[in-house]
Amino acid sequence: MGAGAARRVDGVTVSGVRATARIRARGDGRGGTSLPVLEGEGPLALRRTRGSGAEARVVLVGAMSGPLGGDHFAVEAEVEEGARLRVGSAAATIALPGQAKSEARYDVRLTVADGGELLWLPEPLISAGGSELYVTTRVELAATARLVLREEQVLGRVGEEPGRLGSRLTVRVAGRTVLDQELACGPGAPAGWDGPAVLAGRRAVGQLVVVRSKFTTHPVTARIVGEYAAVMPLAGPAALVSAVAPDGLLLRRVLDEALAELG
């Protein structure tokens, strides 16, 4: 199927859109970061915006259109040695029900080489009623790579029951997995997801992962940073802020506060 192909209807089956966006960040040799690869596709468009200092800045735009059922989106970003990349998105990503009665997938693959830094700070993912989406985020970091990664999920638009949302976030540093977390919510998820051990009826859940090699010798101090949010040193040079909140705005507030403290 070609780049950005439209929905293909072949009789009874409707398959979704496949689209991959690719970013490669490279040190430009003058203390800045160049982007030798910046390729959007179909609904996944990329824009370079003004960066600050050594950092290149990219915004993912147009993700509003999906993913719908059956779609398969992928984003791949690679940060080379010494380069610094910040990726955000122009708006929230909304998972919507599609004509295809199958699950949509969104796969994010992030790689950072030694001395490189990636700030992956997209807007939230909103799981609309009736949607079905499985998101995977895999991060591979070299030993001295730096990472700040935010992942926010909002279950349902205002006043709406959520769709089914599954996600898995895996972070490896120098080949060793320091974080592997799956969450399944919404209709059809294993029972208990909405209950007192998992989300307790809250509709926004988020994680912020910060990786710094200095955490090996100076791990962050575990602490509570909100009603249901905690900063936790992981088993490795990484820290996780995990938060559950009534809505996306309150979730962002607590994650921002925690990030500001982590520096």
Partner: peptide, 17 residues
Amino acid sequence: DVLPAASGPLLEIGAEA
């Protein structure tokens, strides 16, 4: 990697509290 990684955010946060 084939092992499940299902998590309960409130179990983790609650344990820290």
